[in-house]
Design a protein around this nucleic acid. Structure first.
Lengths: 200, 200
DNA sequence: ACAGCCATGTAACTTGTTACATGATTTT
DNA sequence: AAAATCATGTAACAAGTTACATGGCTGT
């Protein structure tokens, strides 16, 4: 919902045309996440379908301006006011992967963790570089960039710490079995059925 | 890709039928993210289209078993081996929202941050509760649950810290202007055009 | 003249997600 | 007999993402 919400919030400041919206999004997020222009037009169409924005005038230069509707204003306000809904299946990709790996008899969890750890460190490094102020930027855009990069660093560090903790935990519990074969305790009542590469 | 990858990784252990796959996924992730069964069948169909899995035998009880193909095995291996690709537009929803709010002349950033902070604390609290071992579980499933819950706590804490830092930073820089009106510096060459609810 | 940015759009696709329909079998 | 669980599926949607087509204008 971040593109959706962002466009609404920006349009709440006044009519904009598509290409301009991208520029606004970029400015306001420190140009950290380049946004494909096509997506702007897609999203505008979808927002129009929902009655949250409307096609407005076209100026002499041919720019197609979009305006926010009352419903759109309400939606923008809600997006800002209400805390982000973490969708039901807000799965943490990394956690899923490591948890899976830890329970697969065949897999080398330590190697998986190590690979992710390296990638995390690399990411951190490039983020540290991205932190250095850019040259030609507006100082407000620079500020936005700092916020955003800081968030990414924060998250990356948290992931690394978690990976380390998990690695240790696994090392400690290594002598216990963590691996899970395909469950033999099948549902209630089909006759048992087949297979089992299990190693429990 | 976490459902996709998980199914492949599980099927790599041996053939399973749909309903069973959900049980396996749940067990291996501590039942933290309940997975709609329908999605299993959807995903299996999609994986079949890609040639990564194939419909296998049906046992006496009527269970439709799925098998992994060689290509599927390769994909599963890659999913585990290669660090997760953070997609291009790997936008951090929270960071986008706060950055946007911070640059909108009209918005009350502090309030937005405060709301997210409260939500974050609430989440942390419910996670702390979710950390308590469940009764009837297998101890390995309990372990998986611990890993996953820990990851979520770790992330939630990181977000809270970032929110606090950001709040402070904004307070310090409050006297400087952070708000960004719609850019007057329009692209190169259309005649200026219209509007401006800007407040810079 | 040619490269490159400005600008608008379209089509297709991916992953995830829900809601619903259907029926068999257990459990109460 | 009713409620719950097992089990398989379908249809539709949401949000994001890319690749491509098209044209005008601008600076070199």
């Amino acid at each position: 919902m971040s593109v959706r919400g962002s466009l609404l919030a920006i349009l709440d400041q006044g009519p904009c045309y598509g290409y301009q919206l991208r520029a606004e999004f970029d400015r306001r997020t420190g140009s950290v996440w380049p946004l494909n222009v096509g997506q702007i037009y897609n999203t505008l169409d979808r927002l129009e379908r929902e009655g949250l924005v409307a096609k407005g005038e076209i100026d002499e230069a041919g720019h197609v301006y979009w305006e926010i509707t009352d419903a759109g204003r309400a939606a923008a306000h809600e997006w800002l006011t209400e805390p982000l809904e973490r969708p039901q299946g807000g799965r943490d990709e990394l956690a899923v992967k490591i948890a899976l790996a830890a329970t697969l008899p065949g897999a080398d969890v330590a190697a998986v963790i190590h690979a992710e750890r390296l990638a995390g460190l690399a990411r951190l490094e490039s983020l540290a570089e991205a932190k250095n102020p850019r040259a030609s930027h507006d100082h407000r855009e620079e500020f936005a960039r700092a916020l955003v990069v800081d968030a990414m660093i924060s998250r990356a560090e948290a992931e690394l710490r978690w990976l380390d903790r998990t690695d240790e935990r696994l090392a400690v519990h290594r002598h216990h079995t963590v691996a899970l074969g395909l469950s033999k305790a099948r549902p209630k009542r089909g006759r048992p059925a087949r297979l089992d590469t299990s190693a429990a």
